[in-house]
């Protein structure tokens, strides 16, 4: 019997179209980058049983199991059910694998679970975000990183969420050791200075990374009770115009971030090029077409920003325009 495979269905079911005819790869979704060891063992088991015995670790913290024969897809979908259960990914029907692949795995750095500088539980927020947006066929990339160091490279994503803390200063506990000043200068932006033996924070320069808090030996610096976020928008890789995401809001709260991303999906549904190849179009190109103001109107609809949030009035992106010139100067 010759193969008769609907590749569009295959791809939406999170199986890769491979250059090797008749073969595919199962794409395991791991929002927030954490799964239990049993799931990892299951991935190894599937790779041994159905794949070629290798496992590919993707750039977005997913796992791909290559070398799977296309006819084994139904069996593989059954085998990976326990992984889907573990990772808490929304599913349409049990034992049928993933219901979509468009919206990419939601990435998270280790965050506050492990990292001394992580300002929030990146995995937890990533999972919450995934619960809200997935399954969805729109090509959207979302990533979370614990602090402005951006180890998760969220500025390459459509929506980058960067943890922030607002340093709280108790001058009565400060002994002018100046370590906060030193480490802010070395590790961060140099927002602190000493005035009359006490530390002054330049609130405009401060990026809320919490380095001062981590290095304070007396607890004169502590973290704000609230966890805050910087939202950066519409970074991307790609052949036309790769670019870094730009700052949109700082000191935002969690709910505002969730609402904005949800609204952005509605905006894309409305304005995506109906003839986009495979239904995929980076949001940034859509915004280039509609103008930023229209995008802003959509994403801020019914968003009740927390009081502390500061919003950019206009956002400009740069990056290399290969579609205009590839000349080296």
């Amino acid at each position: 019997m010759s193969k008769d495979i609907n590749t569009k269905v295959l791809k939406k079911n999170a199986f890769r179209y491979s250059k090797v005819r008749g073969e595919t790869a199962s794409r395991i979704r791991i929002p927030g980058g954490v799964i239990n060891a049993q799931s990892m063992a299951k991935i190894a088991e599937v790779a041994e049983k159905f794949g070629d015995g290798t496992i590919f670790l993707t750039n977005r913290q997913g796992v791909e199991i290559p070398g799977i024969a296309m006819e084994d897809i139904p069996e593989v979908n059954k085998a990976i059910q326990s992984i889907i259960d573990d990772s808490g990914v929304n599913q349409a029907e049990r034992d049928k694998g993933y219901p979509a692949a468009g919206t990419r795995n939601v990435v998270a750095c280790p965050g506050k679970r492990l990292c001394p500088f992580g300002c929030f539980d990146t995995t937890d927020f990533a999972r919450k975000m995934d619960k809200m947006v997935f399954p969805n066929n729109l090509h959207v990339k979302i990533a979370f990183t614990g602090c402005s160091n951006d180890c998760a490279k969220v500025r390459m994503d459509d929506f980058g969420i960067i943890g922030m803390t607002e340093p709280q200063y108790d001058p009565s506990r400060c002994v002018s050791c100046e370590q906060c000043i030193k480490y802010c200068r070395i590790r961060s932006v140099g927002a602190l200075s000493l005035v009359n033996g006490k530390v002054v924070r330049d609130t405009n320069l401060c990026i809320g990374c919490g380095v001062c808090v981590a290095y304070c030996p007396t607890r004169a610096w502590t973290r704000s009770k609230e966890h805050y976020f910087r939202l950066v928008l519409l970074g991307r890789t790609g052949k036309k115009n790769p670019r870094l995401a730009e700052d949109f809001i700082k000191w935002a709260d969690e709910q505002s971030i969730l609402d904005i991303v949800k609204n952005a999906y509605a905006y894309v549904e409305e304005y995506i090029d109906p003839n986009a190849l495979e239904g995929k179009e980076h949001i940034g190109y859509i915004v280039d077409r509609t103008g930023f103001d229209e995008f802003l109107k959509w994403i801020m609809r019914d968003v009740k920003l927390n009081e502390k949030a500061e919003v950019a009035s206009r956002v400009y992106w740069s990056g290399k325009h290969y579609d205009r010139s590839n000349e080296l100067k």
């Binding site: 001394p116 929030f120 981590a214 607890r219 502590t222």
Partner: peptide, 15 residues
């Protein structure tokens, strides 16, 4: 126990 006032996120300090 000072909730969340340790040097890391959501870590307490006792002082």
């Amino acid at each position: 126990r000072k909730i969340g006032e340790g040097c890391y996120t959501d870590v307490d300090v006792v002082r």
